[in-house]
């Protein structure tokens, strides 16, 4: 929430005491008729129910069956898919990989995005239109081309990165066979594609921070760095939370980049960069075990829920301490 000059909540006209009915939305404007809320949200919910939720719910129900979709065979098996999943080393492998990739991609990316936005935010920046357009170039570059380009860059014998590594006197790194090395390769693909995108989000948020705050800070003698920490960052608190949550949800479901690197759904010959959604897809479209894939889907959802919640509370606490 931006630190607008008029702090929230303080300007509500004093209302007569009402029996406290905990409001669904404490930030609402009380004089606006809340009933409209149903109408305004209806289009979203209706369409989402039909096209977003229904297909997934159908598949989720399959988690309790042993299914052969093409033969039309549906055997209810209760929790068997889940018990099998719990004992499946491939699942835990995918889980560990997913978390690893998520950590080494999300944290540097958010830091870089904020830094980038800060530079772009500066009104003295020359050529800002140009720089801002560049931000989105990775995002519009065709996925097919990226597969080829990054596949080349990370080649063990002749890839450009390894040539540089070799020139510096080190041994070539196998970015595809290695576990950590493949995670680094994937993380760099994610960072490459999404840093500019997130920088734009942060930039939009930074521009919403009133300049008076900067003015008063600099008049108080705060230098560039201090202004950043005491004006910019707090103003970005909500945005950081937002980006982190979306980044968590997206990051834990990372799919395209490992698929691009490996070329198939197995996530490398020994599953060294198999991720949760890749594993789901593998079970769904290679193994055709739709019941099992659905169980994986439910597991992913639960994991994302837990991590997002933890994330949310941690961010709130840290940001709370700062301001």
């Amino acid at each position: 929430m931006s630190e607008s000059a008029l702090p929230r909540g303080k300007s509500k006209p004093p209302t007569p005491w009402k029996p406290s009915k905990k409001l669904d939305n404490p930030n609402a404007v009380p004089s606006l008729n809340g009933r409209w809320g149903y109408l305004f949200t209806a289009p979203f919910f209706i369409m989402f129910l039909i096209f977003g939720l229904a297909p997934i719910v159908f598949s989720v129900v399959l988690a309790f069956f042993d299914v052969d979709v093409l033969s039309g065979i549906y055997n209810p098996v209760g929790l068997a898919n889940f018990t099998e999943l719990f004992a499946d080393s491939r699942f835990w492998n995918a889980l560990v990989n997913t978390f690893d990739i998520w950590l080494i991609s999300t944290i540097p990316m958010i830091i870089m995005s904020i830094g980038l936005a800060a530079i772009l935010h500066n009104p003295f920046l020359k050529g800002s239109t140009f720089w801002r357009t560049i931000l989105l170039v990775p995002n519009i570059t065709s996925v097919l081309a990226i597969a080829i380009v990054f596949g080349q860059l990370f080649g063990r014998d002749f890839g450009m990165i390894n040539i540089i590594i070799g020139a510096l006197g080190f041994e070539h790194v196998d970015f595809i066979q290695g576990t950590t090395s493949s995670h680094i390769a994937i993380a760099s693909m994610i960072i490459w594609r999404w840093t500019g995108y997130n920088a734009l989000i942060f930039l939009a948020a930074m521009l919403a921070i009133p300049s008076e705050l900067y003015e008063s800070a600099s008049l108080d003698g705060a230098g560039k760095w201090k202004q950043f920490i005491y004006v910019t960052l707090p103003g970005l608190r909500n945005t950081i939370t937002f980006v982190l949550i979306v980044g968590t949800i997206g990051g834990l479901q990372v799919f395209a980049e490992p698929l691009i690197l490996g070329g198939s759904y197995n996530g490398g010959d020994s599953g060294q960069f198999s991720t949760l959604t890749l594993f789901l897809f593998d079970q769904a479209f290679v193994g055709y075990r739709w019941g099992y894939a659905a169980a994986i889907g439910i597991a992913i959802t639960l994991i994302v829920m837990i991590v997002s919640t933890i994330n949310f509370f941690i961010t709130r606490r840290i940001a709370g301490d700062k301001s």
Binding site: F48, G52, L53, A54, P55, I56, F58, S59, V60, V69, V246, I249, Q253, F255, L276, T277, L280, F281, A284, W290, A293, A294, G297, I300, T301, V304, M305, S308
Partner: peptide, 12 residues
């Protein structure tokens, strides 16, 4: 709903 993996819903 953002946490549900979209890949699941393809066939349906």
């Amino acid at each position: 709903t953002m946490m549900l993996p979209s890949q699941l819903g393809i066939i349906a």
